[in-house]
Computed example of a mutant assay.
Amino acid sequence: MHTMWKGTISFGLVNIPVKMHAATENKDVSLRQLHKECKSPIKYEKVCPVCEKEVGTEDIVKGYEYAKNKFVILDEEDLAELKKEQEDKAVEIIDFVKLEDIDPIYFEKSYYLSPNEGGSKAYGLLRAALEESGKIGVAKMMIRSKEQLAVIRIYKNALVVETIHYPDEVRDVKEVPNIPENVELAKKELDTAKMLIDQLTTEFEPDKYKDEYRTALVELIEEKKNTDQTTTAKDKPKPDNVTDLMGALQASLDRAKKDKPKPSQPKKKKGTTKKKAAQ
């Protein structure tokens, strides 16, 4: 399993060298956008709207827009220094809370933790302490250039880091429109709804839930592939030497016309001008 982060987690005076691994993976079926006419993949380019030309990675800087079209430029060196300052710190568990105290709306992404060299005993100590106490740890850590609030808990004998949103990242539920405050319900309606819930109540077995759309999409792709309903993207045509030569000659001709000085206009004689004016 790929290691995406190495560091140290501490609680009190106990330091645990750990490795972090992604606990989940995205299995969405990725579809490319093709040009309908020639079935070639669409290319997305980074273009400056002012200069009207494509820009490369080396020509791009990062900026924060603090007002309309006004930016603070942030150098890569500045960002790298900030990132290093945070990454060099040990991930310290700052609080212990009950898992049920955190609403699921705060949870974001899961990562497995494994002990790094020499960390097995301390890893086991934290795992046992969390299991015996029924608590989870709350900590801060840097992941992909962002300081994350996270919890550390046990999942099937492994320690897991769950990144969670900061409170200001969770939108106020009061902003949701058209939520009814009080709804009058007949007792019979409520009893029937509760009875239905009781009939459908069971133990959670995650293996029985399948992504039916993804399965059907994969089957459709395989069916089309096996029945030769496929296409091959065409290579971009390369101009031949004649085209290159004509293009170079035309470009040279256009430039020569542009750079050619305009003929000077002959100066009018003063006497002629006065004579015409007198007439």
Rank of each mutant, 00 (worst) to 15 (best):
V218W: 05
Q199N: 14
T202K: 15
D235G: 10
G271K: 09
K84Y: 07
T192P: 13
Y155A: 13
K268L: 04
K84F: 12
P49Y: 08
I197F: 01
E65L: 04
V97S: 07
N116I: 14
G118A: 05
K274C: 11
G247F: 09
A129L: 01
Q229H: 13
T202A: 15
P49N: 09
F204R: 06
R32F: 13
K146P: 00
A80H: 11
E205T: 02
L79H: 07
L217P: 06
E65S: 09
E92V: 06
F107K: 10
E212A: 07
N178D: 08
Y112I: 11
V173G: 13
D211M: 01
P41C: 08
S264I: 12
G7L: 03
I60D: 01
A193R: 14
K121A: 12
P261I: 04
I105Q: 09
R144M: 06
K270Q: 11
F96V: 13
P206C: 02
A128Y: 01
V161I: 11
E87Y: 03
D207A: 01
L253P: 08
G7R: 01
Q229S: 14
A193Y: 12
K109D: 06
P237K: 06
D28Q: 10
L220W: 11
K257T: 13
E81I: 15
K208F: 05
D59R: 04
T273M: 12
I152T: 00
T57W: 15
D207K: 01
P104I: 15
K135A: 05
A139H: 03
K188W: 07
E162W: 02
I164A: 03
I16C: 01
K270F: 12
K276W: 09
K257N: 12
T227V: 07
D95V: 00
A158Y: 06
V47M: 06
G12Q: 04
A150T: 13
I179C: 05
T215E: 15
G56L: 03
E65N: 05
K19I: 07
K43I: 08
L13D: 10
D172V: 02
S120V: 12
K275H: 15
I154C: 10
D235K: 10
K210Q: 11
T243Y: 07
K260V: 04
V72F: 01
Y66G: 05
L99P: 10
R144E: 08
A233L: 04
G118R: 02
Q86E: 13
K260C: 09
E108K: 00
E212V: 00
E77F: 03
A139F: 01
K46A: 12
C48N: 01
E212Q: 02
R171V: 14
T272K: 11
K269W: 08
N226A: 14
P261V: 08
P17Q: 06
P41S: 06
K83Q: 15
H2T: 14
E108F: 00
F71W: 00
T3Y: 02
E181M: 07
V170Y: 07
F11W: 12
S145I: 14
N15P: 03
F107R: 05
Q279N: 15
A158W: 06
A277K: 15
K187Y: 12
L74P: 02
Y166K: 02
P17N: 00
E65W: 04
K225N: 13
N26S: 06
I164T: 03
V72K: 00
D254K: 09
L185P: 14
K84W: 12
R171Y: 13
L34T: 04
K268Y: 08
N241V: 14
